[in-house]
Design a protein around this nucleic acid. Structure first.
Lengths: 207, 207
DNA sequence: CAAAAACCTGACCTTTTGGTGTGTTTTTTC
DNA sequence: GAAAAAACACACCAAAAGGTCAGGTTTTTG
């Protein structure tokens, strides 16, 4: 009896299984602690089969990392001059909070990579981010010069938004422990978005 | 020729060497990736000697973790009712920023542990934090009820302060890359403190 | 100053693990 | 429907790493 996986899709399905499993294992065990065997087990495949698709562990990790960066990039939303400071910040915060709650794993993988010194991150990824921040900082500067918002350092503002939003993903364990809860619930995402939005807008002098 | 390590202090010195080395290795390599050999090398001791003081790798990690938690606890400053909201927040932010810049490693170890699911953290550590947050939240609530600050959720406020301050430690790599710098400098700590203090005070309606 | 305690270390052993090799089964192509 | 390509999987191996051990040296103690 053959399974009717749409032809040519076996590969895609297997790779997806592996990557999903790998993400979990890399988060909880770290790069070195993640064994190919445990990734295989989690994916429901024999080890040799995993290594058939990815020749070695590093390739698996790179694939996970790449997937993560792509998702991060897509979900990050945008900050455009046309929106004006208030709307732009609102949109940005909402996008980031949503990402954090919906895909905490991506955020964690990324966080661990940075904390450990970004050993596996390509130069272009770093340069890209620098570019991104510079660009957005320029937009904030524009609004500041026009008196549309408080005169604060845009780069640090971006850091603050990043950190405060991602906190709910990276440290979900801690957050949940402190709230004495087992999991996030629907309302949380809205609640946090509202809190951060109003707080940060006030901080920006955009009441 | 005998070294004149103050008697009985050989142990303390060796242990300190090991712990310092271990901290670095655990951060960059993760728990599993940190080999006893590499810790020994970094400490300038033979592997067997490291295992003479700590019977196994897990003990080393636990010791590092404990040291970290202690330091974190001591440096965290306090939030007291007498100070009133403005001074209390100022003090708290300054303490946390200073910690982040002066001891990023402690912050990183802790961050990784939480991200990975706090597998090595004792229950009491978690409970303790919950207590701490509850207690401080109550103080904020008191100020809010007295109309001394904006009506915002204290727990989320604490999260925001935590995350925005620790960001400079945990993600120093990213921050430095974006600022296109090699290291933090003296002024940075003051600059960041000022930024965060005024921003957060404004967010709290404490201009 | 001798006995005891603390400290030090090279050699060794065992388990884990990344990765390979080889052959088999399934799917696709023509 | 047969040949080719893709997918699968068992058995195996070499290297790495955690940890032990037995014997040595130094320091402390009384």
């Amino acid at each position: 009896m053959k399974k009717n996986n749409k032809p040519q899709k076996v590969r895609a399905v297997s790779i997806d299984k592996i990557l999903t499993a790998a993400q979990d294992v890399f988060i909880t065990q770290g790069y070195k602690g993640a064994t190919v065997q445990s990734i295989a087990d989690n994916a429901g495949l024999p080890k040799a089969n995993v290594l058939y698709y990815f020749q070695n562990k590093e390739n698996i990790y790179h694939a996970v990392l790449e997937q993560t960066l792509t998702m991060w990039d897509e979900g990050i939303g945008d900050i455009t001059i046309e929106d004006g400071p208030k709307l732009a910040i609102e949109k940005f915060i909402r996008a980031k909070v949503t990402m954090s709650f919906k895909n905490p794993k991506a955020s964690k993988i990324y966080a661990m990579e940075i904390i450990q010194g970004a050993q596996h991150l390509q130069d272009f990824a770093r340069t890209y981010q620098r570019q991104w921040v510079r660009e957005k900082a320029k937009i904030f500067k524009y609004w500041i010069d026009k008196g549309e918002m408080q005169d604060i350092d845009p780069v640090n503002l971006i850091f603050l938004i990043w950190s405060s939003t991602q906190h709910y993903a990276d440290f979900d364990n801690q957050v949940l422990t402190i709230m004495n809860r087992a999991d996030y619930e629907k309302d949380d995402i809205e609640h946090v978005t509202n809190f951060l939005t109003s707080f940060i807008l006030r901080g920006c002098g955009l009441t």
